[in-house]
C-alpha cells in the first residue's frame, strides 16, 4: 500500500508487465483527437477550470540567462499569478501556482523569495536536459538541490537505456534518484520526444512508477517534440494501469509548448476523463509552463469583463 504520506513507494521491477505493453498509435491518436471534441467547458466552469489550471502550474524558467532578479520576478508572479481585481471579481480565494521550477543554481534564491508562501521549489536535475553526466554527479546534483531547499526534483531519464530496452538500468537509476530525493518528491521526465514509439513511452512510464516516481512528466521542454495529446493519453493510461494493479496513485505533468488557456483545458479534460477527479489538483497534476499563466489571465479577464484582454494588461512574471 501507499506510504503514510500518500507517496508511491514503488514495486519491484516487473518485466512481465513491462513486456506485455501494447500501444496502438493510430487508435491512441484517434482518442486524443476526439477526446477534445467530446468535452466542452464554458462560462463559469471555464473560469473555474482555468483558475484550477493556474494552481496546477509549475511556473518555470530554465534559461541560460536566469539571474536572481529574474527568479524574484517569477516568484512574485507565482504568489500572485492572477491579477488581484480578477480574482476578486471571480469570487475566488487566494490563487497561487503549484510550484516554481528552476535550475539548481537558482534553488536557494527561489526558496528565499517564496518563504512563507507555501509554494514549493522544484529543481530540474540529473544533468537536465540530456541526462548524460556521470551517475555519481547526477545523484550529487539531487542531493545539493534538496539541501538547498527544493521540495521537488524533476529528473531526466538516461534515454540510452530506454532506446536499448535496458529497463533494469532505468529502474535502478530512478530508484537511486528517489533515494537521493529523500522527502522531496520526484518527477521523472521521460523526454517522450526522444523515445521514438508510444510503446516506449508507456513502458518508460511503468518502469518509473515501479521505481517509485511521484510524478511522471512528458518532456524537458528542450526536445523538438514536447507534450502532445497522444503522449498524454498513453501516460495517463499507464498511470491508470499502475493504480489499478498496485493501488498507488502517481501524478502526471505535461510540460513543453503549453502556452494557451485552451491547451490547459484540454489537459484537464484528459485528466478527468482518463484518470478521474482525483487528478484535477496539484497533488497529482502539474503543468510545466512559463507563459501559460498570462494567457489564462486574459481569458479570466474576458470572463469578468466580456471583452478580450490585452497581454500587456497582465503583470509580467
Amino acid at each position: 500500500m501507499s506510504e503514510s504520506n500518500g507517496r508511491n513507494p514503488g514495486i519491484p521491477l516487473d518485466m512481465g508487465w513491462v513486456n506485455e505493453t501494447v500501444v496502438n498509435r493510430s487508435a491512441v491518436e484517434r482518442r486524443a483527437a476526439t477526446l477534445l471534441t467530446r468535452r466542452s467547458v464554458k462560462k463559469d466552469q471555464q473560469a473555474a477550470w482555468l483558475a484550477r489550471a493556474v494552481t496546477c502550474t509549475d511556473l518555470t524558467t530554465l534559461a541560460g540567462d536566469d539571474t536572481p532578479g529574474r527568479v524574484e520576478r517569477l516568484c512574485a508572479k507565482a504568489k500572485q499569478p492572477v491579477r488581484q481585481d480578477l480574482v476578486r471579481a471571480l469570487g475566488l480565494d487566494e490563487i497561487k501556482v503549484g510550484a516554481v521550477c528552476v535550475y539548481h543554481s537558482q534553488v536557494a534564491e527561489a526558496v528565499g523569495f517564496l518563504e512563507g508562501s507555501g509554494i514549493p521549489v522544484a529543481a530540474v536535475s540529473t544533468g537536465f536536459p540530456a541526462g548524460q553526466s556521470p551517475l555519481k554527479e547526477r545523484i550529487g546534483e539531487i542531493k545539493a538541490s534538496v539541501e538547498a531547499g527544493a521540495k521537488e526534483i524533476d529528473i531526466v531519464l538516461h534515454r540510452e537505456y530506454v532506446l536499448t530496452g535496458n529497463w533494469p538500468a532505468v529502474y535502478d537509476e530512478v530508484k537511486q534518484f528517489r533515494a537521493a530525493c529523500g522527502d522531496a518528491h520526484i518527477k521523472t521526465i521521460l523526454a517522450t520526444g526522444d523515445l521514438g514509439t508510444l510503446r516506449n513511452v508507456y513502458q518508460a512510464s511503468l518502469v518509473c512508477m515501479m521505481a517509485g516516481a511521484d510524478f511522471i512528466k512528458t518532456s524537458t521542454g528542450k526536445e523538438s517534440v514536447n507534450a502532445t495529446m497522444p503522449v498524454g493519453v498513453v501516460m495517463t493510461r499507464a498511470i491508470r494501469d499502475y493504480v489499478e494493479r498496485t493501488g498507488h496513485k502517481v501524478g502526471f505533468k505535461p510540460a513543453g509548448g503549453i502556452r494557451t488557456a485552451k491547451q490547459a483545458l484540454y489537459w484537464l479534460v484528459l485528466m478527468k476523463e482518463e484518470l478521474g477527479d482525483a487528478w484535477l489538483n496539484n497533488t497529482l497534476f502539474r503543468i510545466g509552463a512559463s507563459s501559460l499563466v498570462e494567457d489564462i489571465e486574459r481569458q479570466l479577464s474576458h470572463h469578468v469583463t466580456g471583452h478580450y484582454a490585452a497581454r500587456h494588461h497582465m503583470p509580467m512574471g
Binding site: K42, A48, R52, L90, G91, D93
Partner: peptide, 16 residues
C-alpha cells in the same frame, strides 16, 4: 453555482 463552487467541484457544466 458560482465560479468558486465550480472551482471546488471541477464538474462539467452545460455547453449548449
Amino acid at each position: 453555482m458560482s465560479v468558486a463552487d465550480d472551482f471546488k467541484t471541477m464538474a462539467y457544466g452545460p455547453a449548449p
